[in-house]
């Protein structure tokens, strides 16, 4: 039975949508070391304002507002990852439907990530693991790999694109998933 008091309700929703909210913060917070802090503070903020949540609204969209403010508050503490995007950019990014849609989609694809990463070449897989599992910066990964930082950078970018394509492929193969119409006709066999 779902919890009834507002605080418990929003906290449950927060945990339910944790991956999305965390993704939102991770996308906007340049210092990965602070992502957990920001998510935690967002959790406290939505708990404190639980009574203001209108269940008719999208919970992630509501939570993103708090998360955005916490990103801004914490961005001054950032030691890694360069300067965050300025407030106005975060503001317009945070109100986009696209954010919620993409992050929802990303959350739903998490279960396929292992399989898609397995499709990468061994070296690129190592880079992904260094950067995302071990939270190394590309430059640090480059040193371990004996690559130039630029090469790691390019490889990461390509890896993300390949993983994205793989995820779309796998998700489309799921029964019940509505595939978008093809923009190009299939080539003749």
């Amino acid at each position: 039975m779902p919890p009834r008091d507002p605080v418990t309700a929003v906290q449950s929703l927060f945990v339910e949508h944790g991956a999305q909210i965390r993704g939102f913060v991770a996308a906007l917070m340049p210092d990965p070391a602070l992502v957990d802090d920001v998510v935690q503070e967002t959790f406290l903020a939505i708990s404190a304002k639980a009574a203001e949540y209108d269940p008719a609204r999208s919970f992630p969209a509501w939570a993103y507002g708090f998360a955005r403010r916490k990103v801004l508050e914490n961005s001054r503490r950032a030691r890694r990852g360069g300067q965050p995007l300025p407030d106005e950019v975060l503001s317009v990014l945070a109100v986009m439907d696209e954010a919620e849609a993409e992050l929802s989609l990303a959350a739903s694809r998490l279960r396929f990530v292992d399989a898609c990463i397995a499709e990468l070449t061994p070296q690129v897989r190592r880079i992904v693991e260094y950067c995302y599992r071990k939270s190394l910066k590309p430059a640090e990964a480059a040193r371990l790999m004996g690559w130039t930082p630029g090469s790691v950078h390019v490889a990461l970018s390509r890896a993300r694109a390949a993983i994205r394509r793989c995820l779309e492929r796998k998700l489309a193969a799921e029964p019940g998933w509505e595939t978008p119409p093809a923009t190009l006709p299939n080539p003749a066999p």
Binding site: A19, R22, G23, F24, A26, A27, L28, P32, V35, V92, L93, M96, E98, A99, A101, E102, L103, L105, A106, A107, R109, L110, V113, D114, I117, V128, E129, Y132, R133, K134, S135, R160, I163, R164
Partner: peptide
């Protein structure tokens, strides 16, 4: 901005994937 979210969501998902392993 839409392109940003496409890339950022994949980035965020991979971060989450890393966290999930952890």
């Amino acid at each position: 901005r839409e392109e940003f979210w496409r890339a950022a969501s994949t980035h965020a998902m991979l971060s989450e994937w890393g966290k999930a392993h952890w």
